[in-house]
Every structure is written in C-alpha cells, then in structure tokens.
Design a protein around this nucleic acid. Structure first.
Lengths: 224, 224
DNA sequence: GTCTATAACGCGATAGAC
DNA sequence: GTCTATCGCGTTATAGAC
C-alpha cells in the first residue's frame, strides 16, 4: 500500500484507454474470476481486439496485478493515504463501508471472487491479497490498541483475533449476500457483527460456551 | 441436505473407482478451483485417461456436483443426519470444527475456493452453495432460538444477523488462514468471534460505536 | 496504437476398438 | 470399463502490416 504512483507512460489519450481497459477487466474478472474471464471478453467491452490489450499490459497476469493495484489506490485512497480513521472512528468507517458496499455488488464480487481464487496454487494475485490482509489487520489492530489504551489493558492475542475476525466477517457476509441478496442485509449484519466483536474486546464476557471441553482439536468431521 | 443415498450403480468395484475419482477431483478442484482444474489432472491422479472419467460422470459439471454432494454427505453426516447438536451445543460443535479444520487445509480450501467461485455467473455449483448456506443459517438460527427461549426474548433480526455472521466469520477466517497460516490461529480466532457474537445476542450491549451517524449508506469509497 | 493473421497449445467431449 | 484417436473450439501470446 502507499505505492508511488508510477507514470512512465506517454500520451494522455493512451492513459485514458488504459483506464477503460482496467475498468472493463475489473468487471469481467469480477463476474467470471481471473481464470474464467478472458482477454477476448475484456477486449469486446472496450471495443478492440485482445491483441490490443496485450500491447498495453503485456500479459493477462500483469493485467490482473494492475487491476488490483488500480482498484486499491482508487478505493482505499482516502483510507490509506489521505486520512486513516483511527480508534473508534475506524470501526464506524468499516460499518459505513459495508452499507455502501450493498450499493455496488460489482466491486464486492470482484474482491470476493479474486481473493478466494488467489489462495489456489501459484495464482498471480496471491501476493497482493496476502499483503492486503496483512495491512488491513494491522490497521484494525492499531485502532483496537487506541481504544484499549483509553479504557484498559487487553490481551495482545485478543486484539489480533478481533482484528482478523472483523475483516473475516465482512468478507464472509459478502459471499453469502452475493449468493442470495435477499437472505441478509449486508450493512445491518456487518454492523451487528462488528459491534459484537468490538464490545467483547472492550468488556470481555465470560465464555458463554463454558461447561464442556471445547478447546481440543478432536476428531470432529463436520466441515462447515 | 438429508438426501437419500442413491445407489443405482452396478458393480462394487466400480463404486470404489468412482470414489477414487471423487477424492481426486476434490483435491484438484480445491487446489485450482473448478475452472482452473482439469479432467486431465484428475485422471492422472487416479491413473487413467480423462475419457475414463467422463465415462463415469458424463461431464465436468456433473462431476463437480457429485463432488459437492459426496463431501457433504461424508463430512456433515453426523451433523445433518445423525444428531444435530442443538442450542449451546451447536456453538461448541462449530468451535470444535474450526479447531479440527486447522488440521485439514485441503478440505478447507476446497470449500473456500468453490463457494466463492460459485457466485460467478452460471457456475454449476451456485445452487448447491445457495442451499447449503440457507440450511446452515437455519440450523444456527434454531440453536439461537433454543438458547434464547431459555433466557429471554431476542429480536428475530438479531438472531438472523448473528446466525449469518457466525457462518461468515468462520468462512472469512479460513480465507485469511489459507493465504497465510502463520497470520492467525484458525481455531482460536473462530472461538473468539463465535463467543463474541453469541454473548452479544444473550446479553445485548449498547452500541460501542454510538456517537456519530453510522447507519446511512453514504458515499464512502473504501472497499475493504 | 490498433489491427489481422497465425502460432502453439489445452480444453471438454465424442466415437469406436478392445 | 478403459483405452486411443480425434474433433471442434477457445485460449494466450506473437509477428508484422498499416
């Protein structure tokens, strides 16, 4: 994150053309995944041939990496460069984002599909998402550190788990929502879960599951 | 779920061969996704040609559907048919499952990759995952209803959001864990999140985010 | 900078021998 | 039930005209 904007490109009209391609690629990769989407479809959408796209980006892999970088600097610009909301404001920002995401299923699907696809062997987007999650976990953990410093001490493990869990629940809710938008209210469910996690960090509750050995990794077979 | 086991197949050795193919297909589809995995790779793994696989399953799409059905009836057998843990026991079961999942990344990856891939247009596994999540949400919501009846009344929306969120956080944690197994403890983080969500249903806390308009879907640009 | 043409390959699926 | 062979198509990528 916070990469320098590289601009070694030449003509101004060329840059606009590249942006058209990036937008089309975001849509196609989001709709069909990276493996499923083809240069042909992207080319059709911007009105050129697939050879033209390869002229601009060199290869399909390189195109994906530029799509991810471009989306990130467009979408997270205000969060990463401009002003990172801190402390409790970050959690409010995340909730607002979840409500906003409900209005743009295309972008949500692109991230949901590509992030999960990236765990497959030698996927070109894997390093990007590894770094992305690492950065986001750090930002959320920092917000927890700020609010915890105001109130009391909290276990480092708890903060780490909570930060990971907040990102996880937002992602997981998106997948369920994409599969069936009528099954849940994306914003409301995200707000509920984030508040639950934040609250349990600020005021830890005794485990409601106590009363049976829970910790050991036994031979349970269910996948879920 | 709770499908009748269909056994219109003939020879006993053929059934064993089919099972070999299903296991190999689970591994390949899990490692490379449905679109990315090929019949050739699956065939190599069981020592035959791709034509042989098509003889048994007819098409690649049909093979995926049988993989999903087979995995489901194998893994969730005890949960769905035998004895569905109820009330608080279900949440304990989910936590145990998360710890157990940390010992079998292959299966975890198969579900993570295929469920996210299934949101893409006309994916053959889409209906399966829609139904799967619908069923799981129902089971978790029922567990909430049981524990709520013991203690007090809770909003239906809250129960629905909590049920969805528990499944979501388990899925989302799996993706982050697959991308970097050292970044989080899958079982511990799942337990933390599930306890936080269950606790906030049983003893609702005033929103820790209060103090600023949070609800409205504004023009936030961040994706997260 | 975009095109046409083509190379080189892999895919799923089918046909028919054994 | 498994094989070989092949069809037909789509893919990424390259070469070269304009």
């Amino acid at each position: 994150m916070t990469e320098q904007r590289r601009q070694p490109r030449s003509r101004p009209e060329t840059l606009a053309r590249r942006r058209d391609i990036l937008d089309a690629a975001t849509e196609i990769f989001g709709a069909k995944g990276f493996t499923g989407g083809t240069l042909q479809e992207i080319a059709d959408q911007v009105g050129m041939t697939h050879a033209g796209i390869l002229h601009h980006f060199g290869s399909k892999d390189a195109l994906l990496l530029e799509v991810l970088a471009h989306r990130d600097q467009t979408d997270v610009a205000d969060l990463a460069e401009q002003h990172i909301p801190d402390g409790m404001d970050l959690f409010r920002h995340l909730v607002r984002t979840a409500f906003a995401n409900a209005q743009r299923p295309g972008i949500v699907q692109a991230y949901a599909v590509l992030s999960a696809e990236s765990v497959t062997s030698d996927h070109p987007g894997r390093a990007f998402f590894q770094k992305r999650y690492e950065t986001l976990r750090g930002e959320v953990a920092h917000a927890f550190a700020v609010v915890c410093a105001e109130r009391g001490i909290t276990e480092p493990d708890t903060v780490a788990d909570a930060a990971t869990a907040i990102l996880a629940v937002m992602d997981g809710l998106q997948v369920q929502w994409l599969l069936d938008p009528t099954a849940l209210d994306l914003g409301r469910a995200s707000q509920f879960a984030i508040e639950a996690i934040v609250a349990s960090v600020l005021e830890p509750v005794p485990s409601p599951l106590a009363g049976s050995a829970v910790i050991s990794a036994d031979q349970s077979r269910s996948t879920v």
